[in-house]
Design a protein around this nucleic acid. Sequence first.
DNA 1: ATTAATATTTAACAAGGTTAAATATATTGT
DNA 2: ACAATATATTTAACCTTGTTAAATATTAAT
Lengths: 168, 168
Amino acid sequence: MSIPPLPGALEKIAVYETANALHSLAIHLLRRARAADRESGLSPERLSVLSVLTFAGPRTVSALAELEGVSAPAISRIVSGLEKEGLVKRERSTQDARQVRVAITNKGKSLVEAARRRRIERIAEELIRLRPGELGKLREAARVLARLEGEEKGAPRRLRQRKRNAGT
Amino acid sequence: MSIPPLPGALEKIAVYETANALHSLAIHLLRRARAADRESGLSPERLSVLSVLTFAGPRTVSALAELEGVSAPAISRIVSGLEKEGLVKRERSTQDARQVRVAITNKGKSLVEAARRRRIERIAEELIRLRPGELGKLREAARVLARLEGEEKGAPRRLRQRKRNAGT
DNA sequence: ATTAATATTTAACAAGGTTAAATATATTGT
DNA sequence: ACAATATATTTAACCTTGTTAAATATTAAT
């Protein structure tokens, strides 16, 4: 608990404590999820692109780059890899022949769905050990957080631009 | 919601729904946190090693490898980078001259603390928008999850071995 | 005292990140 | 219409981080 005693009311300190707790728990949860992903045989980057294509539908290379927060060349290469494994299909756009639309194949789709199932399964495995009434508490908390997230979805999203620390 | 209708009681389905919700929220939370990390100017890998050294104290190269779930050569190189920036110090062990103990420097420590503060700050920024009473719900949920996590800490931990998908 | 085991580093390679440059197609201005 | 410009993608060259295999140094064991 090395959270600094920022100036503010007691309530604000409780906010920090809770933020801290949620942070730890999120790390724990996603560690399990990522571990489950390894069974897919795909790298996290490829699996992520595949997931985006699953929930967002076919997308151009630049759209994928934007969504993943990486450069277009990075996506181009990842798509090449996925294509070679038959998990996505590239197709020149008819409206604008500069664009390339990337679509997930059925093979890719089932791979993503299996991976997602494993992720959720791993988390659910932990929840089974909950005591009576505790599941309800989690659901309430999830609803609260989902509302927070939903609200900011309304605001225009900042363009993320990942930056690697190159030559020090 | 492509969660399969696994055989089981209604309660089990609720478990899956909650797992699903928690999963989404964890992703959202950590995305923010990672974004904040970029301000540190360190790569995620280096920052992670630095964090481990902060909370676990000085460690040998192999211990770090085990904790990070990567190979010893990978850690060795990362430590070299951190050392060059003056964030850690290498020191041959006196008990066993084969081992190298890695310790964080003051510079490294303040860098990690600043990064951690930023992470928590980003999460807290969202929580400020909570309605009265909602913070309490989150705290209860956090306590429940922390107990689950704490319990399994008791069991011996499996050795993680990260595996990159090499030649496809 | 050899021999075997352990800890770290170095070497050689793959994946994925970057920016810059090459290519192809659209769009715009005169 | 056509030359100039802008946009979308890919290729090229380089960096970081992952891997495994081999080199080195030190400890443990027969």
